[in-house]
Every structure is written in C-alpha cells, then in structure tokens.
C-alpha cells in the first residue's frame, strides 16, 4: 500500500523508541478496553510518538504523555512514518 515503501502497520510494541506513527486500528480485547483506549485519546487516525519502551511504554499524543503496560501497548496497531524515527513534524491531523 505504501507509496515510499513505508513498513506495514504492526503493534506499537514492534517499533523503536523515537518512532512517529499513526494509529491504524485498536485490537482491544473487549468493549471496555476499547472505550478505555479511546478515552485516553488513543484513536485510529491519531498521530503519536513512542518516547520510551522501558520501564513502561510511554507515548506522546499532542500535549499528553501516557504510560501504558505491554498488554495495552500491544493492542495499538501503528503505521510508522516511512523510515521509522526520521520524520519529526509534530503535525496532528
């Protein structure tokens, strides 16, 4: 699908710290978990950045930073900007 050989979407846990990407889908286990992710602002279509992978997953969405455990981080399907970690525009939309 990618025009410039962008890597296919994969769970957030697959990408290195510093990556920017767009949330493509949420593989939530149930409605309650989906509602939780949405309430946190983790919504398909939103751009985020992975700040840290340990001791916990820390992501930045707009002005908000969120800490997530492995279980929740794995449910976020992320399409990274083409060469992961290079693009640096904090353009949301």
């Amino acid at each position: 699908m990618g025009k410039e050989k962008s890597p296919p979407p994969a769970p957030l846990t697959c990408w290195p710290a510093g990556s920017w990407g767009t949330v493509v889908d949420l593989a939530a286990e149930d409605d309650a978990q989906l509602a939780k992710l949405l309430a946190l602002g983790i919504i398909p279509g939103v751009r985020l950045r992975i700040l840290r992978r340990s001791p916990c997953w820390i992501i930045q969405i707009g002005f908000t930073r969120l800490a997530l455990d492995e279980t929740l981080a794995r449910t976020i399907l992320l399409l990274p900007d083409h060469p992961p970690g290079v693009s640096a525009f904090d353009r949301d939309g």
Binding site: L40, C56, L66, A67, L68, D69, T71, L72
Partner: peptide, 12 residues
C-alpha cells in the same frame, strides 16, 4: 476475570 492492565497519564 481479566488481568490487571496499567495506564496512566504522565504529567510533566
């Protein structure tokens, strides 16, 4: 029941 999951907002 489902295992505990962790999420929290991280203020500066």
């Amino acid at each position: 029941g489902p295992k505990a999951v962790f999420h929290m907002e991280l203020p500066p």
